[in-house]
Design a binder for these strands. Structure first.
Length: 304
DNA sequence: ATCCAGGCTCCTG
DNA sequence: CAGGAGCATGGA
């Protein structure tokens, strides 16, 4: 079975709590791409065009924080790349100590960091994945957004059957580029989002749009380029930079969930106003996006 | 039917 | 640049 699966240990900076990452992946039932199985996270990656199904668990030795990455299926040669992808996605190199000390005089954030100690910003496997997910999630409730994502994944993503379970990779732009807008709209996306997704997928597939390269330029310029795409606004642009490219200074200030969570911490439960959000973002400075991820993971029932 | 949901666009002051 | 009116598309 899996006893002989190639595997590698990947170390993390401290603090790190794998259970919080797992909880994030489990936040909605029916998630196909980021799969969980008990205490394990499983994901089908495409590495150099071939399938690599990885299983991630907390490191065996709890005194050394990190994860073990096992290759359940695929070419053993792809294990290092897979481990690197997981390291990045789980944010194991993010310097939480630096963030903690930057806000050591901020009682609210210090309490939030303590409550979610070891939580790291979960990144997507590509900027394209974050952008597509953001577009799907615009102005609809999250439950419905997850359903739409599943439909998209099952139509355009590659899959692998392993031990009776089907695992899905997030759709490649090349595949989505060939989609028929009309039939995409039928799945509930709506004409506008369908058109936006297909046009982005085509631009990426043709090499006209290099989303990963946005990480190498000025944030303002990156946002401007994303917003130039019809159907992409500031919220989508910032979400993409944050979750897709790990730009901790990106911040979707208008996000409803953020405004609610910030409201619980700062505004007596009322959703924080946009101007308040901007003010908080100023305080949070280069860590504003990372703080946002903490807020998203700070549900009402956990509020102090 | 009515209001809401992890917005976007266009139009005003 | 801030604030507001439509707009789209299902859910509860």
């Amino acid at each position: 079975m899996t006893e002989t699966a190639p595997r590698v240990e990947v170390a993390s900076r401290t603090p790190f709590d794998f259970r919080l990452a797992l909880r994030y992946f489990r936040r909605r039932l029916g998630e196909l791409v980021d799969a969980t199985d008990g205490d394990a996270y499983r994901r089908l990656l495409l590495i150099d065009g071939s399938h690599a199904l990885v299983q991630v668990r907390a490191a065996d030795e709890p005194r050394v924080p990190g994860v073990s990455v096992e290759l359940l299926a695929g070419d053993a040669a792809s294990l290092p790349a897979a481990a690197g992808a997981i390291l990045h996605a789980l944010g194991l190199d993010d310097d939480l100590d630096q963030m903690h000390s930057a806000f050591r005089n901020d009682a609210v954030l210090t309490s939030l960091f303590r409550r979610l100690r070891g939580l790291r910003l979960v990144k997507t496997q590509s900027a394209f994945e974050a952008l597509v997910w953001a577009i799907i999630g615009q102005q609809i409730n999250l439950t419905f957004a997850f359903r739409l994502k599943s439909a998209l994944v099952q139509s355009f993503g590659e899959s692998l059957l392993f031990e009776g379970q089907t695992y899905w990779a997030f759709p490649q732009p090349e595949r989505l580029a060939g989609a028929d807008e009309a039939s995409l709209a039928v799945t509930g996306l709506g004409r506008r989002k369908a058109a936006t997704l297909v046009s982005i997928a085509r631009a990426v597939a043709k090499g006209q749009l290099d989303l990963e390269a946005l990480a190498t330029i000025d944030r303002g310029e990156a946002v401007a380029r994303l917003i130039a795409i019809p159907g992409v606004g500031p919220w989508t642009a910032h979400y993409t930079l944050l979750r897709g490219l790990g730009d901790f200074g990106a911040f979707p200030a208008s996000d409803l969930g953020l405004r609610m969570a910030a409201g619980r911490l700062y505004c007596a439960g009322e959703p924080a106003s946009l101007s308040r959000m901007r003010q908080l973002a100023e305080e949070w400075d280069d860590w504003r996006g990372y703080v946002a991820f903490y807020l998203w993971n700070s549900p009402a029932e956990n509020a102090t």
